[in-house]
Design a protein around this nucleic acid. Structure first.
Lengths: 340, 340
DNA sequence: CGTAAATTTGACAGACATCAAGTCGGGTGG
DNA sequence: CCACCCGACTTGATGTCTGTCAAATTTACG
């Protein structure tokens, strides 16, 4: 039976919602404030958490933060309840790793739909995590692919593909980190994507024109699996499940890119830098960021010198600390809430 | 039999390439310079055009421009030949409407592959143009959808959906123009997409989380068909062809968005404005742009006042003319070639 | 240990946003 | 039909944020 933890300080809403959920055949735990919520989360390990944002003592962001500190509940879907469709709240919450938002007042259908979507996604993630399992959808073809596929190793700074070339592989990161970036006429670089172990890259081009408009480069020693275009084509043609996975990845990327677009257009230098730090934190899932200043500047879309100055400011404000070039994030909340 | 027009001033390359193409069972016309190329294009109406960029008298960009002036050859795939993988050239060409790039020296396989891809895409576009035909892939379900579907009319400035809401329809623009945009904390707006008659919108959200992160609004009186989410889900689940169409749309959007990202990050004001004009020109396929200054500024990602000043400069430089607020593009080439 | 690369600091200027005032045109109501 | 008003557009003056260039310092690496 699916268990849900509901954290909400308003007793009326809490009981009402719990009732709806119980009727929908979920097992429901409730908590009346953030601290209690965190405790019950660790105690019961629910399949999904619904949490109000505005609460006394420990608010929703705080709860999310506490949970993410412990890896046990990293994969648990987290849905925020919020009073109004406050846009900036939404974005901040999403950046901190929330999966969905429900705005009060909500009706039962809306709530149940959102829960079902998240539960099914979580199951998907568990089932199909990484290379093997994605292709295991196409069990028959898996063995063939594995035997034929060759893996390449790339050293730090080595180029994987460049703009203008025809795409002939789908890449899968087995080890290390990779960036994709675009070069501006004036020589500046903008990083459009970061890839960690377990990520695919190059599929956009394969699905579109076939000619790269960006370039990929290893930012630390990396090992990639190369899946020939023909195999990829065959796989997505013969197997709608795989195609669906890729369409979801694309759609998710799309949303991220639009957020990035909005930020780069109108954010101040400080906010651009903060967002860059947060997006790397989210991508690589670490509080300690080890990345060259050039690359960090290219993620943020600002000049390297400006970036360095801003990092210095952040250090003085105790938002981060810097040791031997490594950036340690100290105050995620303030970074996310940074005003322009 | 598929006919190809090859425009290339270097006799060796021309003859060599023509030979390859002939062997691959295409009917080939050749032209030794831009003017001859344009004439032969109108004379023979080829299925595909391959054209060198650097040529005396009328260069490749000029050829493309001349062809696009006449609508007859608008849909004909156009592939550029270019000496090196010069990135900035690539982007300019793509902005002007080229479909692909091949960098010299190229081998036969590469050339033939690119041609085949373009030919097959052109056929696809012809076959499935607009609402009816996309869904005609799923012939059985088409009638049901048509009868059930309801159409809404929206007046200029009317909101279609807003951020934070759950997506429940796929929209299809029957008439009018629509924008999607995101709101920044400081109140500024960035337009992330423009939609014309025959475009779908809202599919990214349907394919991803189900909660809008952007908002849609009519920029002139518009009529939209609303396809319920359930129908859309069923259609893409039961019909891989439809899913594939959407994945291609997504992938194409993705590339556009990355270009926009690079531009907004590093372009000067002048170039941002020029790019905004060009992208609207390309989207709505008209030399005369009738759009509010606010919207134009939101496309470019700059302040309204800065935009207006820049338009004034462009007018003085005879790149555009302005009559009663309408902007008439006079010199596409210089706009595309604008340096920072 | 020496050299090159990466990072940091400093000084400076220019591009662009902002605020404010003014103009134009079109719609509305008397 | 005219006066009025409101919104869209334009122009002007001003300040500041952030990129650029240059030099200094630290780190990486063979």
């Amino acid at each position: 039976m699916t268990t849900i933890l509901l954290i909400e300080d308003n007793a009326d809403i809490r009981e009402n919602t719990a009732e709806i959920l119980t009727m929908a055949n979920y097992k429901v735990f409730t908590a009346a404030d953030g601290m209690e919520g965190v405790h019950k989360a660790f105690e019961h390990k629910p399949d999904l958490i619904i949490c109000d944002i505005t609460m006394p003592v420990l608010d929703g962001y705080g709860v999310l933060h506490m949970l993410h500190k412990r890896n046990a509940l990293q994969g648990t879907p987290f849905i925020f309840l919020t009073a109004r469709a406050e846009r900036s709240d939404m974005r901040k919450g999403m950046e901190m790793g929330a999966d969905d938002f429900i705005t009060k007042p909500f009706d039962a259908m809306e709530l149940l739909q959102a829960i079902e979507i998240r539960i099914s996604k979580a199951v998907q993630v568990k089932e199909s995590n990484g290379f093997e399992s994605l292709f295991s959808v196409a069990t028959g073809q898996l063995e063939a692919l594995k035997s034929e596929r060759n893996t390449n190793t790339y050293k730090k700074k080595q180029v994987i593909y460049t703009a203008g070339n025809r795409a002939s592989f789908l890449y899968y990161v087995l080890k290390g980190k990779v960036k994709t970036s675009m070069l501006h006429d004036n020589g500046k670089e903008l990083i459009t994507g970061l890839y960690n172990e377990g990520d695919y890259l190059g599929y956009t081009t394969l699905l579109e024109s076939g000619v790269y408009t960006d370039q990929a480069e290893a930012i630390e020693d990396a090992e990639l699996a190369l899946i020939p275009k023909a195999d990829f084509d065959e796989l997505i043609n013969s197997n709608p499940g795989v195609l669906k996975r890729f369409i979801e990845m694309l759609a998710k990327n799309m949303v991220e890119k639009e957020e990035q677009l909005l930020g780069i257009a109108y954010n101040s230098l400080r906010k651009k830098v903060a967002d860059a730090l947060l997006s790397i934190h989210k991508k690589f899932n670490t509080m300690s960021i080890d990345i060259s200043r050039d690359n960090l500047a290219a993620v943020a879309g600002v000049a390297k010198e400006s970036l360095i100055r801003t990092l210095g400011d952040f250090r003085d404000e105790k938002l981060i600390s810097i040791k031997e070039g490594d950036i340690l994030l100290l105050d995620l909340k303030k970074l996310a809430y940074m005003l322009n």
